[in-house]
Amino acid sequence: MAEEERGHVEAHHHDHEVAPENRDVEETGHYELMATAIRELLVEKGVVTPEQIREQLEFMDSRGPALGAEIVARAWTDEAFKERLLEDGTAAVDELGIPMAGLELVVVENTPDTHNMIVCTLCSCYPRTILGLPPDWYKSKSYRSRAVIEPRAVLEEFGTSIPENTTVRVHDSNADMRYLVLPMRPEGTGGWDAERLAGIVTRDCMVGVALPDASG
């Protein structure tokens, strides 16, 4: 739907919003029980095995921003890899042994002219095989709603200011296609090796809500 049409749609679904801070502890207990009940039932029925669940948990725990930082640092230090990464993200990260599990990866490069940030307005699609599970704010109604309409205001809430003459481009992910931001390599990191560079590439930099800081 076009942005200008949205203002006319009644925001009726906000009426029922349950503010997380208003929920009592009992409700979290409810979902803990639900998760355990589902696992027990599916295992007993032979639908899934405990090993299959464990493998999923282990894979989940093996994913995290360090993988993304490795990709970015490699791109900063290897021009040919960077070209492949921007051309076909899925194939390029596969070279590093990072699977996209059937999804397409699109890597968007920050330049002095363009700053990129990513969102998933429709759900919370996120490059999980690279960055791990998304942070709470990425899944929040506030971020999903506002990132596409007032990205600079959202960036300010993360303490990030983008110069007025730089275009801010927001990429809306979907179930089949995930984005990763390739930040600009900061000034003053000329002599740094890939490992040291990876140390300044945070999750938020790769979502595009922060910039790498080489001053620390």
Binding site: R6, L122, D136, W137, S142
Partner: peptide, 17 residues
């Protein structure tokens, strides 16, 4: 309900437990 891009909403809390 899921199509919330562009809808009004409050500030983003950058904390992530």
């Amino acid at each position: 309900q899921h199509d919330m891009g562009g809808m009004p909403s409050g500030p983003v809390d950058p904390d992530s437990p």
